[in-house]
Computed example of a mutant assay.
Amino acid sequence: MSSLDRANEAVSFLTKSLPEGLRKPQVAIVCGSGLGGLAETVQSEPRAEFDYTSIPHFPVQQSNKVAGHAGKLVFGLLGQKIPAVLMVGRAHYYEGHSMEQVTFPIRVFKQLGVDTVVLTNAAGGLNSDYSVGDITLLNDHLFLAGLAGNHPLRGPNDEEFGVRFPPLSDAYDLELRRHVHRAWKEITTPQTSRKLHEGVYAFVGGPTYETRAESRMLRMMGADVVGMSTVPEIVVARHCGLRVLAMSLLLQDKAAGELSALLEEGKAGHEEVLEAGRAAAVDMQKLVVQTLVNVFGSA
């Protein structure tokens, strides 16, 4: 069965249970670690939720689900009238899934009629100008795994989705990024200490956090932030012709080869990552919603 057939089967399952107004979402949002609160910004009615385990061919997280990743699709209205689908938690490559599997939801979004995908994640900061709690608007990436051949588009090309050799020089939509900067001015005050940056994201396979030497290497290669998700999804989204907006919430400081600024003795742990980011996540959620309201309008 082709990727197109699998995606269409998943879409058929979803749409038969969706209210009419939610069957053609305009935007899809992938909620990263600790950012599942975005789902609570969706209007209470109409609304529909699906556990990943119920959706045909959908990648399912390990049974001991990663903390901060609920594992469900939420359909509803953002800003009172923007039909959206939110992916609360994602399957990761480090769990043992293939690149094709972790990016399958993007194919489903395309077949649902989505035009724009917003990807969020929790990441480590490599740039010494960045601080824990800052937000980085991605404008490029380093995909070392992809350059080495572990790539989500490897194999026969799905012509129904896109061309054999898709360019990625325009992967991060300039107009959408401009909207983010405008939205940031609207939701912050002069007293806001948190900063919004633009930068480069480096994808690493995980699940271990990077060593000091690895962090220094990635920084020297031009990366500002580092994480274990997002880039494979961006590649497939662009292959499908979707507009891409991606943001990282900085929850660790690896700058200048230092260990995590959040944790005693520099030991990075997932629970501490989530706890440290709760307040920052609220601001990031506001930023995503305000950006989409500005882009698509509200009632």
Rank of each mutant, 00 (worst) to 15 (best):
I55N: 00
R23I: 05
Y52N: 05
V11S: 09
P19E: 09
L22G: 08
S12N: 13
F13L: 02
F50C: 08
K65W: 02
I106C: 04
I82P: 04
K65E: 08
L22A: 12
P56G: 03
G79I: 03
E49N: 13
V11M: 00
V74L: 15
F58V: 08
V60M: 07
G36I: 04
S33P: 03
A48T: 06
L73E: 01
R47C: 12
I82T: 05
A28C: 12
F104S: 03
Y93N: 04
Q80G: 09
P19N: 13
F13I: 01
L35D: 01
R107K: 15
Q43E: 15
F75P: 00
G34C: 04
K81N: 15
S44E: 14
G21Y: 05
H69T: 02
E45R: 15
T15Q: 14
V66H: 12
Q43P: 04
A48N: 10
P105W: 10
T41Y: 06
P25H: 03
P46L: 12
K24D: 05
G34N: 07
E100P: 00
R90D: 06
Y94Q: 07
V85L: 05
V88P: 09
F104L: 09
V66F: 14
E20L: 08
G32L: 13
E40W: 04
L77S: 04
P46C: 10
S98T: 15
R47I: 09
E49V: 11
K24M: 05
E20N: 02
Q101G: 07
L38Y: 01
E49S: 12
D51A: 15
E49C: 14
G36Q: 02
H57D: 02
V74E: 02
G32S: 05
M99E: 11
V60W: 12
P25D: 05
Y93R: 13
Y94E: 02
N8Q: 15
L38P: 00
S63I: 07
V88Y: 09
P56T: 04
K16Q: 14
K24G: 01
Q80K: 12
L77Y: 07
H97Q: 09
S44K: 15
K24E: 11
G37Y: 08
I55M: 04
L18F: 03
T103I: 05
S12P: 03
V102G: 04
R23K: 15
E45I: 09
L22H: 04
H57F: 15
H97W: 10
Q43K: 10
E95C: 01
P83V: 04
P59N: 11
G71C: 06
P25R: 00
V60A: 08
E45M: 11
L18D: 10
P46N: 05
S12W: 03
G96H: 13
N64F: 07
E100R: 15
S44M: 08
K65I: 05
Q26W: 08
S44V: 03
S17K: 15
F75E: 00
P83A: 04
G34R: 14
P46H: 06
V74C: 13
H69M: 01
F104T: 01
K24Y: 06
E40D: 13
Q61K: 09
S98W: 04
G37K: 10
M99T: 13
V66T: 11
A39N: 00
E45S: 11
V27I: 13
Q62P: 00
R23A: 09
G21E: 08
N8M: 09
V42G: 02
S17G: 13
V30Q: 09
N64E: 15
L35W: 12
P59W: 10
A10E: 03
Y94P: 12
A28F: 06
S54M: 13
Q101A: 15
V27S: 10
